[in-house]
C-alpha cells in the first residue's frame, strides 16, 4: 500500500511527460481537423439533406439518441459540422479547457452514426483518444488534475496497444496472413488499390514476406515498444508499413492515425525537441 501511495504522490506532483502530452494533443486534434476537412466537400452527400445514406432510428435510450442526432436530423448537418470544426480548432489551440474537447467527442460520433460506411477505424481510434484527452489538464497541472492527466495518457496508450494486439490476433486466427497470401487478395481490391501496384503480384516472395511481416509487427509492437533502444527502428518500420497502406490502399487517414499514435510512446526528449522545433518555426 505504501508503494501505491508513493506512486499516487508521484502522479500528483505533475504531468509525467508534459511534452509528450502536448504533442499527442496537437496530433489528435490535428488529425481530426484534417479528417473533417477531407470530408467537407462531400458533407451534404454523405450527411446532409442530399445524403445517399438512409436515416437510421437508434435503439431506445438517452445515449443512443444523443449519438444519433445527426443520423435522425440531416437538416442540421451544416450546423453540427460547423460546431464540430470550431470545437476541434479550440481544442487544438487549448482554448476554453475541457468544454470544446467534450464537444469534439460528442459531435464526432454524430458523423460516425450518420454514415457508418464512410469512416474507417482510424476515425474511431481518434474519437476514443479524444475521450481520454477530456481528462487531461494543462501540461503544468498538479494534484488531482495531474493524476487525471497521467492516468488518461496511460489509458490512451493502452487503447493504442489494444488496436495492434487485436489486429494481430485476428490475423493469426485466419489463414491468409499466416500463409502470406493476404496482400495478394488486398491488392485485388479494386476500390482500394489502383492498377499501378499490380507489378507486386509478380513477386510472390515479397508479397508473402510483407503479409507475414504485417501480422508479426502488429503482434509484437505491444511488447517491443517498451524497450527504449528498439523504439526508433520499430517506429521507422511502422512508418514504412503504414506508408505502403496509405499509398497502395488509398487509406492515408488510417495510416496517419496509426503513425500519429506512436507519439504516445515517444521518450520525453523526442517530444521536447519536436515542441522546440515548432516553437522556433512559429517564431
Amino acid at each position: 500500500m505504501k508503494q501505491i501511495n508513493a506512486m499516487i504522490d508521484k502522479l500528483a506532483r505533475g504531468t509525467l511527460q508534459p511534452n509528450t502530452l502536448w504533442l499527442f494533443r496537437k496530433l489528435t486534434y490535428g488529425w481530426l481537423l484534417l479528417n473533417a476537412l477531407f470530408f467537407s466537400p462531400i458533407r451534404n452527400l454523405f450527411y446532409g439533406e442530399d445524403a445517399v445514406i438512409m436515416r437510421t432510428v437508434p435503439p431506445p435510450g438517452l445515449l443512443q439518441n444523443l449519438s444519433h442526432l445527426l443520423a435522425m436530423n440531416r437538416n442540421y448537418a451544416d450546423e453540427i459540422a460547423g460546431l464540430y470544426l470550431l470545437s476541434i480548432v479550440l481544442s487544438f489551440a487549448g482554448i476554453l479547457g475541457r468544454i470544446p474537447r467534450i464537444a469534439v467527442f460528442l459531435l464526432g460520433w454524430q458523423f460516425y452514426y450518420a454514415n457508418i460506411f464512410a469512416m474507417n477505424s482510424g476515425y474511431i481510434l481518434f474519437l476514443l483518444f479524444s475521450f481520454f484527452l477530456i481528462f487531461t489538464g494543462s501540461t503544468k497541472s498538479e494534484g488531482v488534475s495531474s493524476i487525471l492527466s497521467n492516468l488518461a495518457m496511460f489509458a490512451a496508450k493502452t487503447q493504442f496497444l489494444i488496436v495492434y494486439a487485436l489486429a494481430g490476433l485476428y490475423k493469426l486466427l485466419g489463414v491468409m496472413w499466416v500463409e502470406g497470401s493476404a496482400l495478394w487478395y488486398a491488392l485485388h481490391l479494386e476500390h482500394f488499390v489502383s492498377d499501378r501496384w499490380s507489378f507486386l503480384l509478380e513477386a510472390p516472395l515479397l508479397l508473402r514476406g510483407l503479409s507475414i511481416f504485417g501480422m508479426l509487427y502488429q503482434l509484437l509492437f505491444p511488447l517491443l515498444v517498451w524497450f527504449k533502444r528498439i523504439k526508433g527502428p520499430l517506429f521507422i518500420l511502422g512508418l514504412l508499413f503504414h506508408s505502403f497502406i496509405a499509398v497502395a490502399m488509398q487509406l492515408p487517414d488510417f495510416a496517419l492515425a496509426m503513425v500519429f499514435g506512436y507519439s504516445l510512446f515517444f521518450p520525453e526528449e523526442w517530444s521536447a525537441s519536436i515542441r522546440r522545433f515548432f516553437r522556433l518555426s512559429m517564431g
Binding site: 443512443q64 467527442f105 452514426y113 474511431i124 489486429a167 486466427l173 485466419g174 496472413w177 488486398a186 481490391l189
Partner: peptide, 19 residues
C-alpha cells in the same frame, strides 16, 4: 455502444476475396 464502440479486425482474419 454507442460512445466506445470499436472493432479491430482490420482486414482480418482474412482479406475479402470478392469484388
Amino acid at each position: 455502444v454507442p460512445f466506445f464502440h470499436q472493432g479491430w479486425a482490420l482486414f482480418a482474419p482474412d482479406v475479402p476475396q470478392q469484388q
